[in-house]
Amino acid sequence: MINQIYRLVSPGRFEITYRDMSLNGNKLVVRPKYLSVCAADQRYYQGRREASILQKKLPMALIHEGIGEVVFDPTNEFEIGQAVVMVPNTPTESDEVVEENYLPSSNFRSSGYDGFTQDYVFLNRDRVVPLFTELNNHTASFLELVSVSIHAIRRFKEKTHKRKETLGIWGDGNLGYITALLLRKMYPESTIVVFGKNDYKLDYFTFVDKKVLINDIPQDLNIDHAFECVGGRGSESAVDQIINCINPMGSVSLLGVSEEPIEVNTRLVLEKGLTLFGSSRSGTVDFQDAVNFLQQNKEVIDYLSQLVTNVIDVYSIKDIDSAFEEDLVSSWGKTVMEWKI
């Protein structure tokens, strides 16, 4: 069958390409239905990556957050029309120590490998997770981001000591919101503190114990462990604040992506005996854990739905442009594309 793929060929410019795909084999065919725009997609769309990287990775279909419905399954394991979340990470090998999202050989959609802006997506059978009916489509579209927080918290549990009286989250954006929300539910006895830059964004964090502006952190405020969800230019100051606020033997989970190297106060890291560890992306197990968590804690879905700020019907390439432009000027939340092209 001929599949239409909507690729970014240069910053701000999409084009349609055609690829002949075979239905012979074991792959699932999924029709994308709801796609969510990520900051990483925006960096490609705006050309805010180094020219050498753009030259290497473009043309490329964007979007790695999305859900769809099964339209073909050669083994009849999945029902036709079944709603599934699509896993963007595609490993080519397995390792008994290194998880799939850290293997250099893995392919990741919308990062050098075609994302979900296609008529149909051909997926390995282990790259989808079924959804439950109570999870609304707009919220489900960014389950990938939820899985990233789930993955980071799983690693946090493995690497930290038992004292978790106060947990700090730096970052008042989407990732900070989701991470704080999940921590609130998983650690109900802990004091959850969010550190942010904008009052109006912190207002959305109604479920935490304390909200602190990064320019007005009390000198006597200490935390046991921290999650850095800032990224970009703000990573350096966020990590510096964390190192100063955190108690000895604490752990720092680094989630924010920075294009440039940042300075770290290693003297204080050593003095306090801190553990810094990075978490990036996620795998199928994290998607399954995210779906299971939401199915068991349905009240969390309402909080996640507050992140949906733009919903764009996409019938053409022009509508894809509109979605990215709307997302660019949005100061909060997620832009969701209803994929009707």
Rank of each mutant, 00 (worst) to 15 (best):
M1C: 00
R7T: 14
V9H: 14
V9L: 13
P11F: 07
T17N: 00
M21P: 00
N26L: 00
V37T: 03
D41T: 09
D41E: 14
Y44K: 07
Y45A: 00
A61H: 06
I63N: 06
E65C: 07
G66Q: 12
I67D: 13
V70M: 02
D73W: 01
P74K: 00
I80L: 00
I80D: 00
N89A: 15
T90W: 03
P91G: 15
S94E: 06
V97D: 02
V97T: 05
E100S: 14
N101R: 00
P104G: 11
F108S: 08
G112P: 12
F116A: 08
Q118R: 02
Q118H: 08
Y120V: 01
L123E: 01
P130F: 06
F132S: 07
F132M: 09
E134Q: 02
L135T: 10
N136W: 00
N136L: 00
H138Y: 02
L143H: 02
L145A: 07
V146A: 00
S149C: 12
K157D: 12
E158R: 04
H161M: 08
H161Q: 06
K162R: 05
W170P: 01
W170Y: 11
W170G: 06
D172I: 12
G173H: 09
T179L: 07
L183Y: 09
K185A: 05
Y187S: 11
T191V: 07
I192V: 10
F207I: 08
D209L: 15
I217H: 09
P218Y: 13
P218H: 13
D220S: 15
D220T: 14
L221H: 01
F227S: 04
C229H: 12
C229Q: 11
V230Q: 11
V239Q: 14
V239M: 15
I242V: 07
N247F: 09
M249L: 15
G250H: 04
V252F: 03
S253M: 12
V257S: 04
S258G: 10
E260N: 06
E260Q: 10
N265L: 10
T266K: 00
T266Y: 08
L268M: 06
V269W: 10
G273S: 05
V285F: 11
D286L: 07
Q288D: 02
N292T: 12
Q295S: 05
E299I: 03
S305M: 09
S305T: 07
S305F: 08
I317S: 14
K318Y: 13
V329W: 11
W332P: 03
G333L: 01
K334P: 14
E338C: 04
W339T: 05
K340A: 06
K340Q: 10
I341Y: 08
